[in-house]
Simulated scan of single mutants.
Amino acid sequence: MFIHMKELQYRAKPERPDPVFARKLQEVLGGQYGEMSVMMQYLFQGFNCRAEQKYRDMLLDIGTEEIAHVEMLSTMIAQLLDGAPADQVDEAAKDPAIAAALGGMNPQHAIVSGLGAMPTDSNGYPWNSKYIIASGNLLADFRANLNAESQGLLQVVRLYEQTTDPGVRDMLSFMIARDIMHQNQWLAAIEEIEAIDGPIAPASFPRERAVTEATRQFMNFSVGEESSMGRWANGPMPDGTGNFEYVANPTAYGEAPVLKPAAKHQHSTPGTGPYVVNETVKN
């Protein structure tokens, strides 16, 4: 059961209308790394969580907070569209698509949503569930969450630098703060799980079934040796199973593939006429 409070989690009131920036904010609302994505990702990870109860509760706590962020952004976008400059509004009334294109505004804000936010990115592409990850493996999922918060924070910071509106910056400064907090939360959760199961996800696969030497080798497939100087090419491996091995000139494990010749009978496909695999057939 979810309970909605009328008050927003934080202030979301711009100083002046700005339909162009409203379009930009759609990215951190309905884009791949927007608030809708982290909201759905954390909630579905929580709904499906079979691990210790504290992990389920954490996921649902943060996912529920992200619902509040979706509402804050939607409210801000609606107000940035409300009372837009008169020349844009007048033109939109005559031909919304043309006025929106000329002004840099999202035409669908004028045509489809009635000057309201939409579950889309800044180019109007609809949000979809392919953006989210909920695999059931906590370590893999928490790393995906850390990536989502990192990319989301990057985009919000870039948007902060693209406006001087004090009201918009005020709201974005809060969202930046929460993204910093959530990155720290996922880092702490990852550290806790790694201390129990190690840093490799999934931890359940028997290591002896893997090709042992391939688990240690950093293979250089390019010209130059600069990559050999990285931590990933020398010294102990983070999982404690051995040392990295730098391979300057990798050799092939397998053989050149030899495939059997195609069958010598014809097939027919509607609309294309007769054909034979790997042969030319004349009608």
Results as ranks from 00 to 15, higher is better:
M58C: 01
K94T: 09
L146S: 02
Q79T: 02
T120H: 11
A144N: 10
P119R: 11
L139G: 02
I132S: 01
A140R: 12
A51C: 02
W127H: 12
T75P: 00
Q88M: 15
I132R: 01
L102I: 13
A100D: 05
V89E: 03
A99S: 15
R56V: 04
A140I: 03
I77Q: 00
D57L: 11
C49M: 00
Y55E: 03
A99W: 06
R56D: 00
I77Y: 01
P107E: 01
G116N: 15
M76F: 07
E71K: 14
E91D: 08
A134Q: 09
T75S: 09
L115I: 01
S113E: 02
R50T: 14
Y125C: 08
A93I: 12
D121P: 01
L73G: 03
N123C: 06
D82V: 02
P119H: 11
R50F: 05
I133D: 07
A140V: 03
P126W: 11
D141Q: 08
A117M: 05
A110H: 04
K54L: 03
K130H: 09
T120V: 15
S122H: 09
G114S: 06
E65K: 14
M105Q: 04
L138R: 11
S129F: 15
A92H: 07
V89P: 00
Q79A: 05
L139F: 04
W127C: 03
E91L: 09
A84D: 04
S122K: 14
A86D: 12
P85H: 13
P85M: 15
Y55F: 14
L139E: 02
